[in-house]
Each structure stands twice: as C-alpha cells, then as structure tokens.
Design a protein around this nucleic acid. Structure first.
Lengths: 227, 227
DNA sequence: CCTGTAATGAACTATCTGGTACGTTCACGG
DNA sequence: CCGTGAACGTACCAGATAGTTCATTACAGG
C-alpha cells in the first residue's frame, strides 16, 4: 500500500544489459531512500549517519561526497518528498465534475495520497518540531505553490456561483480542514491507538474515515443548502 | 497566553518566610519544566541532558538522582503533560446545555485548551515519531480514560434522541475530528506558514478558526436537519 | 546540640557520532 | 590503449554526550 518516495525502478535499464558498478544516480537515490526512512522513523537528531550508510550498498563517505552534511542530506530528503507529493497532485483531474462531487473527490484523493505516503507526513512532523527552519533554508520549498490549492480555489468559485457553497469558504481554510483530518490520522496514529485503542489506519476503518472526511467537508461547505 | 504545564506557584509559601536551600519538590518540578520545554523544542534525541541541567538551578546529577535516565525523564515529562491536560478536562461543565450548544462549547474549550498547551501537542508529536513506545512502557498512560470523551458520549446520545444529530455519529470519531483540527493548527503551524504564508496561530485569525471548527463539527452532526 | 540521611555538586569516563584524510578503482574520451 | 577525473572505500579523529564516582552539605528528628 505505502509507496516509496522515489519513483525510480529497481534497476535502471537506460544503458542496456549489465549492472553498472559505478552508478552515481542510483547511489544518490538509494541514499535518499534510506535517509528518508531513517529520518522519518528516528527524527533528525535521532537518525544516525552511520546507520543510514550501513543500510545502503555504499558507505558514509558517499553521503558526504554527494550531500555534504547530515543537515543537507535531511533537507534533500525533505525536498524530494515535497516534490514527489506535488507531482502526484498535478495529476488530479476533477475540474470537469460538479462542485459538490469535485470536492468529495478531492478530499478522497488527498486522503488516499496521505495514506500512501506516511514517510512524508512524518518528515513534515519532524520539520515542525524544528520550527520549519530547514524549509526556510531551502531554495525550492518556501512558498512552493500547491497545485491542489489552485484547483480547489476554482472549484469553490464555481460552487459559490452556483449557490451550492457558503460564501465565506476560503480555499486555504478548506485545504487546511482536509489536511488536518488526513495528517492527524497518520501523524497521531500511535498515541491515539495507545490511549483509545483504535488504530485509525486499520484497513477495517478506512472507508468509514474516507466517507466521514467527505461528509465533513461537504456539510461544512453546503451548510443546509439542500444539496 | 500559553500556560506552563506545571500549576505550581513560582515560590512555595507552605513553609512560611525564607527560601529553602534544599527543596526536593521544587527541584523536581523545575527539572520537569525545563525538560518539557527542551524535549518539545528539540525532540527526544535532540534534547541534551547537559542543556536541560544548565537551564535549571541545579545540576545534571540531580536529573539522574530523581529520574534515573534521560528516557525516564522524558517519560515523566510526558506523563505530567497528559495529567495536566486531563485535569483541565475534568472541569468542563457543559452537560446542562442543549446538545447543539454543548457541542460548540466543547469544541471551543478543546480549541482554547490546545492553544494554551503547545508543549503538550509537540510532545505528543514527538511521541508519535517514536511509535508511542514510551507511552506503552508507562504504567499510567495506556488506556488513560478521557473525561471529555465521556461527556461527549452523553451529549451525542441526547442529541440523537432529540433528532438533532445524525445516527452514525460515534463519540470517538467526533473527538478525533475536533482533535485533528486543533492539533494540526499547532503541530503543523511552521510548515504551513512556510509553504502558504499563513500563521494559523496568529491572534488575528483565532476567532475565525474557532468558529470554523464549531461550524464544521455541527454541520457534520446535524447534516441538514434544520438545526 | 548532635547525627543520620536525603539532597547536592564537581569532575570524570566510556562510548558514540558527525565529519575527514588519504588512498584506490572504475569508466570513458581521445 | 591510456590517463584523467569522477566515484568509491578504509581508517581515523575530535568533540559531544549519557551516565557515574565520590565527596560534601543542609536539615529534620532526637
């Protein structure tokens, strides 16, 4: 179910035939894959450069060769994670739907998409612990446009024009509402389960939460306008 | 605005008159206060025992004297944070209200209460990064009853009986919905602000989000039943 | 006033950890 | 075929860090 953050195939057949012994691209990606996992599971300070190297088919020297420092490696992992997420958001094709159906579809796609990328959610949690200071240092991340937000803006406009949606619904607010629900389910899974004995990510409850999210957003937006 | 996790007054006047040089209780509490801040700002691995000691009026030796290890100190901070939160939840007095008003009030109190205890939220985020393994080790935390949840259960029952609320509304789901919104606002404040340039905790937007939460929950629960 | 003990402090240690110096090997263009 | 630079591996280091040792002091109860 959970997809890796890198979309590369296991073996790169661009140069046909045999495995290459030296393959900078593969090495870089492999380091990033392991780093993403380690950082998301241990936190920034908790992750060990030695451990990341050990879980790679290369050595610690290569990490410093390609990324320069632990912090830059972390940032590279974070940047790639955001890039991956954003690229999947590009693909959402819902603007041909009626506003109400489009919103439900958007919510469900966001839901699926958070569920498929737990590493990303965890990385974002970690980044928040550190006050988003690494994002601030990044050249690509601050203010990174969110394609989903643009789509949402246009759907809301149409919905308001049709009289289906309330007038004071701001796109960023609705985006936040959806994110909050999806992020919480993944990010707070363990404490929630420990305290309330309910695993929010248990496949048994999946459809229930998915429907619930759509209902929640739509009831809020339509607010007794009789659908 | 943000309240400290310990409710003790700065100076303990139980033994009247002068400052005591030896004060185990004060020392313990002071260590916990600093530890809570450090862990919540740096993460578990990122927090430094030496740094915690330095920000206290006592020494590292005392941390090990009272708490035994870094991990037990962290757990003690986490347990105290949960205890503080739960004790404030005991005080909510809303069962005399009509279901609709009670739900809005509950949502608002939860909202205020999360806003007042950012350290708690951050600690919970950190605990989730580590798969809630410390909670699992704790004797007091797993399955810790949530008074707010009991109150919520009874309000929902009344609301359903009155025909105000939908039939399939589960107390834990509604609690999750409210928590998700409140937790997200605090826990993801920094990345959200970095990407979207909106500080969800800016006092300017406070009332807006507070109302939005109440609307969201109530629209979901009433779902076009004409209020 | 005396004394046992809880509370406290300074300095120390073993280990871990991010980072580096330096040497080696592969692959590709000429 | 060759040499040049990118890609890689080994071994090491200096500083940091959790945890400890041992001596000392304040204070409650007698």
């Amino acid at each position: 179910m959970a997809a890796p953050l890198s979309d590369n195939p296991p073996a790169d057949p661009s140069s046909p035939g045999a495995e290459r012994q030296r393959d900078p691209d593969r090495t870089r990606v492999e380091i990033l894959d392991v780093a993403t996992r380690e950082f998301s599971e241990q936190g920034y300070a908790g992750a060990r450069v030695d451990e990341i190297a050990a879980k790679t088919r290369t050595t610690k020297r290569m990490i410093y060769y390609y990324f320069g420092s632990k912090e830059q490696l972390y940032l590279a992992a974070l940047e790639r994670a955001y890039a991956t997420i954003r690229s999947t958001e590009q693909e959402l094709d819902i603007e041909h739907l009626q506003p109400v159906e489009a919103i439900r579809r958007l919510a469900e796609l966001t839901f699926d998409h958070h569920e498929s990328h737990p590493d990303f959610i965890r990385l974002v949690s970690i980044e928040n612990i550190h006050g988003a200071k690494h994002i601030a240092k990044s050249e690509s991340l601050p203010g990174l446009a969110n394609p989903a937000l643009d789509v949402l803006t246009r759907i809301l406009e149409r919905g308001r024009a049709d009289g289906d949606f309330r007038d004071d619904a701001d796109a960023l607010d609705v985006h936040m509402m959806i994110s909050a629900f999806c992020v919480f389910r993944t990010a707070n899974r363990h404490t929630f389960n420990a305290i309330f004995d309910r695993d929010m990510l248990d496949p048994t409850h999946r459809d229930h939460y998915r429907t619930m999210l759509g209902d929640m957003v739509l009831e809020y937006l339509t607010a007794c306008r009789g659908r």
